[in-house]
Design a protein around this nucleic acid. Structure first.
Lengths: 200, 200
DNA sequence: CCTTTCACATGACATATGTCATATGAAAAG
DNA sequence: CTTTTCATATGACATATGTCATGTGAAAGG
């Protein structure tokens, strides 16, 4: 089967590609270091499978997966990521992703997952099963938006200007976020939200 | 040469070990997923080299390198890390580390680096050279300490209690940190300090 | 020995932040 | 057609945060 490896960290990308290519039934036909490159390569080379990281520059692995689904492209996607966040997982499933592995898994699982997916099956890291039970994002869009800007170091006033709101409104959203997350202050709230992957 | 691979991320650890083991002149005699394990394995197996991540649970790769230097252990260390921070690099040099590679480097560099170091040389990613010029940490110990606690989401009052200071003193340290880092507020300061690796 | 420097420490004051009561409009439930 | 619910939006108020003037003691340089 023809495979493309998309992963921004050079060492891991190279190592995985080399290792997969050693397998008799796997041929690594291309490597990409960001989402855009991956999409272009997939359209050009039409591989059977693509091993894809989520957090990459230019375009995330999930963006690529969604584009492929939109185009009804035959290439099947196996996500390989550090984070077991319910948001990622659910979005991946919606995008028709066939495999979802954690970078913490042993290396053997990757080859096995590729074969399973190529044969028409699905492959999901056992740790991910738990993810279903994870609490979902309690923040409204506005609250997320405001908290994200606060996380970037902006003051309430700055945020208000950027979103065309009054400063009081911004503080209120932050206050709501703080209460929903049972945080002590906005810094605490930012930490909690980031840990759960609730900021975008 | 006998090599140990210490890296907490399972996939990368497995892939690197497998690939290195394929080389005729390299034998991977052990793998560790944290610093403590790495140290124990090195003392038990006495390898020629150890490929080591910095950010690992239990004990960082730099901690291990320092312990080895202290014991005048013959095992030479090659650091493999995501971050090109001057603090890391300088600490590594002090600990007598012989190689310092970024995880963004191509995979071939690792094998090459191992051979160079085994032959008595040094191997440093070219990106790291710049690191020398990086600005050093402008924060005093107290300021770092306070900023770190603030980053964890504590209020000034909490921090004061924990460090047996008055709340005003804590706010003053934070204010100094904010000014030194030319930040807008403590959140901004935390971001800047973290980006530069200035929070220990 | 005296000055300079600098990390450390504090409180007074102005500003920013967090909370609460309140209001509107849109969508869902009755 | 109501009623309920909920995201959105605001301002008044109390609290937390950021700044500044000031002071101490220890180390470095004259």
């Amino acid at each position: 089967m023809k495979v493309i490896v998309a992963e921004d960290q050079g060492m891991l990308r190279g190592a995985l590609s080399a290792l997969l290519d050693l397998e008799d039934d796997i041929e690594v036909v291309g490597q990409a270091e960001n989402g855009k490159q991956a999409l272009a390569l997939i359209q050009e080379l039409v591989p059977d499978l693509c091993v894809m990281d989520i957090e990459m520059p230019e375009m995330s692995g999930l963006d690529v997966a969604e584009k492929l689904k939109e185009q009804r492209h035959s290439c099947r996607v196996v996500i390989l990521t550090t984070f077991s966040r319910s948001g990622y997982f659910q979005r991946a499933m919606k995008a028709g992703v066939r495999g979802f592995l954690l970078k913490d898994s042993p290396i053997d699982e990757l080859g096995a997952a590729l074969r399973t997916v190529h044969a028409g099956g699905r492959a999901v890291s056992p740790e991910l099963a738990m993810t279903f039970w994870e609490t979902e994002n309690p923040l409204t869009e506005r609250e997320q938006e405001v908290l994200k800007l606060a996380a970037a170091g902006l003051t309430a006033g700055d945020i208000a200007k950027q979103l065309f709101l009054s400063a009081g409104t911004v503080r209120n959203y932050l206050s709501e976020a703080i209460q929903k997350l049972e945080a002590k202050n906005r810094i605490d709230a930012i930490g909690i939200a980031e840990k759960n992957g609730w900021l975008s």
